[in-house]
Design a protein around this nucleic acid. Structure first.
Lengths: 108, 108
DNA sequence: TCCATCCGTTAGTTGACTCTTACGTTAGAG
DNA sequence: CTCTAACGTAAGAGTCAACTAACGGATGGA
């Protein structure tokens, strides 16, 4: 999960993911959309691939990349569980606060 | 969104969030659970608060922190949209691949 | 007022990250 | 085999992030 979070914390890498979420693109096509050098994009592609967010397919000398949304699974689960857990705790806090208010200061 | 992603990309900060997701804790109580110095935790708390992930409440000389799960909203929406979009693209790719397979190589 | 407690902030160091330039590798054309 | 196209990789520079040690501010009790 950490690799995924570190990977998508970088704006350019999120942009790359968006580019290849609709279909395959070659490394060169991806790099052409940015104003940094091609090696820089190649390094970003490596980070994304190591995080499992990218699938690579070779075709001759070219390399085609595609997004791998399943890699988001763990992060999604983390966010959901945290969301539920925290809202539950918040709900409990509000309720006990209401009980305290009713006892100590009944509806003003 | 970027601030939230950078914030939760750090393991210690995720641990802090987990600690205060069940209720309020003071800065000292939080720091006591880690083996780094208290200032280090204080800096993590600042990062989390700036990302909107933490709510601070002062009581005397102490500061009580609580998780603010609403801050996850934007990231959740991003992941969901990406998930849906990519799976749709994947589905379309599979279907066109099936059509190609049926025409070019009908069920072996 | 004086002192202790609870924290945040600053300065400085170390390590990680991002970029560029230069080079190496592989596949296909001629 | 030679040349080119399309990439990745390595080395180095600049920047950013995380930590420690030292200090400062605010609150509350004696």
């Amino acid at each position: 999960m950490e690799a995924v979070l570190k990977a998508i914390a970088e704006p350019r890498r999120r942009e790359i993911l968006r580019l290849v979420s609709g279909g395959e693109l070659t490394a060169g096509e991806i790099a052409a959309r940015f104003d940094v050098t091609r090696p820089a994009i190649s390094q970003h592609l490596t980070v994304l691939r190591n995080a499992g967010l990218l699938q690579e397919r070779r075709e001759g000398t070219r390399r085609l990349y595609r997004a791998r949304p399943e890699a988001f699974g763990e992060v999604r689960a983390y966010l959901e569980s945290f969301w539920d857990e925290s809202l539950l705790a918040l709900k409990n806090a509000v309720e006990s606060d209401e009980r305290r208010t009713i006892r100590g200061n009944p509806r003003n």
